[in-house]
């Protein structure tokens, strides 16, 4: 059983300071399933993801928080550790380094940190990682272009949702 009491608390805690942290969580598709959530992170400053808003699909397994949440980018993103095909994420704390003491908020913050500091030596997307290592300029260009194209279109929608929650 997912510990829903904790999830409720986590949501409240996370959304309290979303303006500062740049991450927020809400129920998926405005439904009422506490095990299917939708996270949002803003692209970190001074990266090709700056100005973008990225949606992350969050599913909580039965054993949450003793098992890690399953997270996947919904917004297309050009990043060595994120699949350009399906948004799968390669991040240790979402796998074997997960600890029940971590929260959805800390996980999202880690994703934000991952956007700032790619780890091309441990890639999820080999094509992107190759480009990152061999042709950094082109990589920056593509990542910026993808942010412009995919991460800004929905920004109005997201802001509306944010307003609603506040």
């Amino acid at each position: 059983m997912v510990d829903f009491a904790r999830v409720q608390k986590e949501l409240a805690d996370c959304n309290r300071d979303m303006a500062i942290s740049g991450v927020s969580i809400m129920l998926h598709g405005n439904g009422n399933d506490l095990s299917h959530l939708s996270g949002t992170i803003t692209g970190p400053l001074a990266t090709p993801y700056e100005g973008g808003t990225f949606q992350i699909d969050i599913r909580l397994p039965e054993g949450y928080p003793f098992e890690p949440p399953k997270m996947q980018f919904v917004t297309k993103v050009w990043h060595p550790n994120i699949s350009s095909q399906n948004g799968a994420i390669c991040l240790d704390i979402l796998k074997d380094q997960w600890s029940p003491a971590l929260t959805l908020k800390t996980a999202l913050l880690s994703l934000q940190a991952l956007l700032s500091a790619p780890e091309p030596d441990d890639p999820q997307d080999a094509v992107v990682a190759q480009q990152y290592l061999r042709d950094y300029q082109t990589f920056m260009g593509t990542a910026r272009y993808w942010t412009e194209t995919f991460a800004k279109r929905s920004s109005i929608g997201t802001e509306e949702k944010v307003q609603k929650l506040l």
Partner: peptide
């Protein structure tokens, strides 16, 4: 309660021999 849950998940996961503390990075 939380410890118990954690242990059960780890034992089922085949990690009985090295169940680490729940704190992050401990």
């Amino acid at each position: 309660n939380c410890w118990t849950e954690h242990f059960i998940v780890k034992i089922h996961d085949g990690q009985s021999r090295r169940i680490r503390c729940m704190a992050h990075k401990c």
